[in-house]
């Protein structure tokens, strides 16, 4: 469905993309993760044909992006990060306008716009000016505007930034429905839980390169980060942590915290608590250190995702 090969782009002396390659199959949900300035937006901009690469090739639905931009644009939908709507127009007028750009007959657009308004729970407010909407409602229309022409591929650039929980849940439901219906989706987000929840595969991008990609399990295998039970104890009894650390095969102590590494943390937790009790250690807090995208990302890039 999408074939990206050796994509390169520089702005002056800054190399924004340095040989990005990936393939996305039909109906796949692909997450693109990276800190600010990693090259996510540049990649999306090139894939959506508003930016030309210096080098590289992009094939979308069999069309070469550079040679057939219009054909490519007809099969993709882009949900921009910012709310790109006309505030003085109503939701219906906005949808009718954005749909008209794809040369769909007016009757078809209207029907589709009403379907989407119902899907996003905004049918009753369809005639109200967008400027009277809440942030979450605007974001819903922002998404609907990208779906009018029933694209085969959807680029979603942080679609849930700054919205209320109700709108977020509704958007999640719609995203899942679109995925179930077979739409190919490329999703960029800062929210790890969203990527973990939706993505079939994830590409981690940093300094203009994809440094790792695969399913969440495949990424977990690639990282050196291990799961652990972390015990925090009273300073007065912290010295005794050394006793039980020596009993555990893979562990370490930092001040009044002890890390007990394990492949099955939940099962081992009770054992560790028992050891602490036996040693007379007064436990203040117990937590799991999980291997998740956040830790994988930190391990691979040395940066927090929000850096």
């Amino acid at each position: 469905m999408i074939h990206v090969s050796n994509l390169q782009k520089s702005f002056g002396h800054v190399q924004a993309l340095n040989g990005i390659s990936f393939n996305i199959t039909d109906g796949e949900f692909y997450g693109l993760l990276g800190p600010n300035g990693a090259g996510k937006t540049t990649t999306i901009s090139i894939l959506s044909s508003i930016l030309k690469p210096d080098e590289g090739e992009v094939i979308i639905s069999g069309y070469n992006l550079l040679k057939n931009p219009v054909e490519c644009k007809n099969v993709i939908g882009v949900i921009p990060q910012e709310i790109a709507l006309y505030n003085e127009l109503s939701a219906l007028e906005n949808l009718m306008f954005w749909g008209s750009l794809y040369l769909i007959p007016a009757g078809t657009i209207r029907k589709r716009a009403i379907e989407l308004l119902q899907l996003f729970g905004l049918f009753e407010r369809r005639k109200d000016k967008v400027k009277t909407y809440s942030g979450g409602m605007k974001r819903r229309i922002n998404i609907a505007a990208a779906l009018l022409h029933k694209p085969e591929i959807l680029f979603m650039d942080e679609p849930t930034v700054g919205i209320d929980p109700q709108s977020r849940n509704l958007i999640f439901e719609v995203i899942e429905k679109l995925h179930r219906d077979g739409m190919t989706i490329i999703y960029t987000t800062h929210y790890m839980e969203e990527a973990e929840r939706f993505c079939d595969r994830i590409g981690i991008i940093d300094n203009g390169q994809i440094i790792a990609q695969g399913t969440l399990n495949e990424l977990k295998m690639e990282t050196s980060v291990k799961e652990a039970v972390v015990i925090t104890c009273e300073l007065a009894t912290a010295g005794r942590l050394n006793e039980i650390i020596s009993l555990w095969k893979d562990s370490k102590r930092i001040d009044n915290k002890a890390y007990f590494y394990s492949g099955k943390v939940r099962e081992d937790m009770s054992k560790i608590i028992q050891l602490c009790n036996q040693a007379g250690i007064e436990i203040l807090n117990i937590e799991f250190q999980k291997t998740n995208l956040e830790t994988i990302f930190l391990d691979l890039t040395g940066k927090q995702l929000r850096d």
Partner: peptide, 13 residues
């Protein structure tokens, strides 16, 4: 500034 121009450019126009 409001991003609608970018959105117009995403379209086949």
């Amino acid at each position: 500034q409001e991003g609608t121009l970018k959105r117009l450019l995403y379209s086949p126009v």
